[in-house]
C-alpha cells in the first residue's frame, strides 16, 4: 500500500502520475484517476444563476494541517475499501481558468473500490481539508462560500450503511 499526498504550487503531469501509480505492483486490475480543473466561472453563493466570469482563483491552505487532514480522509477511505495505491495532489496559489487544480488517483484489484475511493476522497476534500478559494471576478476579489451541494455529497457516505 502506498499513499502519496502533495499540496503544491506546481502543476502536475497526469501521465507520470498514472505511470507511477501503475508501477507499484503487478496485481493492479484498475486505475481510476480524477482531475479537477478551474472553471471559467464561479458561483459566489449557493445560487446556480449567480455565475460570473472568473479572472483568477487563489487557493490558500493551512500548511501541516491540510496534509494531515487529507491523510485522514485517505485512511478512512481505505478502512472501507482496499486499494494498492492512492495519490492526492492539490494545488494552491494563483490559478487561471482551465488549469489543473486537483488530482486523485487510485489503484485496486477491481474497479469498484478504485471508483469508490476516488469519489469518497474528492467529496471529503471539498468539505474537510483546510483550503479556501478566493476569486478575482474582473478585478473584484471575493472569498467563495461553502456550497450546500458539497456538504450533501459528503453526507451521503455516512447515510449509506451498506457502502
Amino acid at each position: 500500500m502506498s499513499i502519496n499526498i502533495h499540496v503544491q504550487h506546481e502543476d502536475f503531469d497526469l501521465a507520470s502520475e498514472y505511470t507511477s501509480l501503475r508501477s507499484r505492483t503487478s496485481k493492479i486490475g484498475a486505475v481510476v484517476t480524477f482531475t479537477g480543473l478551474v472553471r471559467d466561472f464561479e458561483r459566489l453563493h449557493d445560487d446556480p444563476t449567480s455565475g460570473q466570469n472568473l479572472h483568477t482563483l487563489t487557493l490558500e491552505h493551512y500548511p501541516g494541517m491540510t496534509e494531515r487532514l487529507i491523510a485522514e480522509i485517505v485512511d478512512e477511505a481505505l478502512q472501507r475499501w482496499s486499494a494498492f495505491g492512492v495519490t492526492v495532489i492539490h494545488r494552491v496559489g494563483c490559478l487561471r481558468p482551465n488549469e489543473q487544480i486537483v488530482f486523485v488517483g487510485v489503484t485496486s484489484e477491481h474497479r469498484e473500490n478504485a471508483f469508490k475511493i476516488a469519489e469518497f476522497v474528492m467529496d471529503y476534500l471539498k468539505t474537510k481539508a483546510t483550503f479556501w478559494k478566493k476569486v478575482d471576478l474582473n478585478g473584484q476579489q471575493q472569498w467563495i462560500m461553502a456550497k450546500h451541494s458539497d456538504t450533501k455529497a459528503a453526507a451521503k457516505w455516512t447515510e449509506d450503511s451498506d457502502e
Partner: peptide, 10 residues
Amino acid sequence: IAFLPPVTGG
C-alpha cells in the same frame, strides 16, 4: 491558534 471558516477546496 487558528480560526477556520468553512472550507472550499477540491
